[in-house]
Design a protein around this nucleic acid. Sequence first.
DNA 1: ATATAAATGCAAAAATATTGCATTTATAGT
DNA 2: ACTATAAATGCAATATTTTTGCATTTATAT
Lengths: 144, 144
Amino acid sequence: MNKKVAISDFKGMLRKGGLKATKPRMAVLHLLARSKRPESPRAIVEAVPDIDQATVYRMLKMLEDARIVRRVDFGHTHAHYEILRDDDHHHLICISCGRSEDIHKCNADEMASAVLRGSKQFARIERHSLEFYGLCNACSKKAV
Amino acid sequence: MNKKVAISDFKGMLRKGGLKATKPRMAVLHLLARSKRPESPRAIVEAVPDIDQATVYRMLKMLEDARIVRRVDFGHTHAHYEILRDDDHHHLICISCGRSEDIHKCNADEMASAVLRGSKQFARIERHSLEFYGLCNACSKKAV
DNA sequence: ATATAAATGCAAAAATATTGCATTTATAGT
DNA sequence: ACTATAAATGCAATATTTTTGCATTTATAT
């Protein structure tokens, strides 16, 4: 019964990245794993008891380098972070209330190679971000 | 000889948006028009003589609402702004030095309608952003 | 030329992110 | 299990980015 691969074997991921499995770190990772949406550093500080903001910011950077989380930009004045899965998903973001939804259709990888071929200045593409901005049902009803 | 449509008829654009063509505003628009890359508020404050940062931030927001500029996120801790053209272009950004290049291939609009059809929570999509992150030639040579 | 609303500048503050350093903690090796 | 070690944390201070209130200036329509 314990043979499942554990999509959230954070200890293993951390070890692979040369990072220690500290309590604050595990707490943040579990928070992100539970959350339906990418979370801001501030939200993390508020949600995890007794954690310091410096710890959160530093941690997120390390986790990003280790490719355990990724940073996404929603056009706000702060970042958001989510657990990095390898499903190349992106987001649909409400420009009114900020709610977000994952989307899974993406053919940008094909685009990427075309883009690279067309560029004289760039040597390689590592990743891309694709976000759609619109109005969720609720905000759409509340007039324009 | 003066019958060209003037891609930078900022006065006209501003009027259409109900905005006044003030000197600071024209200076910022011309700066953005001249620049090869999206500029940060800070860079604008430094480049335009005697302009106040509050003016720049407020102005950029208004210009964005009026659809004269658009905000782009490069994964830095600050925003960038560029003149909004209607060519649906996106960017290739060097994750090492920050240099950026415009790219013009994009089929995300087709994607957008598929995405919307697939979503139960969203009513419409207004726009999207697509950015590719990689290494420019110079940074690519400087080791990994 | 003038009245008016809009935009600006200034000063202060709020929000977001980073740094240095002393202390604590997870981990590898015994 | 114990210990040495490097890594991570907490704390306090600071830096950077963005926003706000209000008095003054400016562009525009009349």
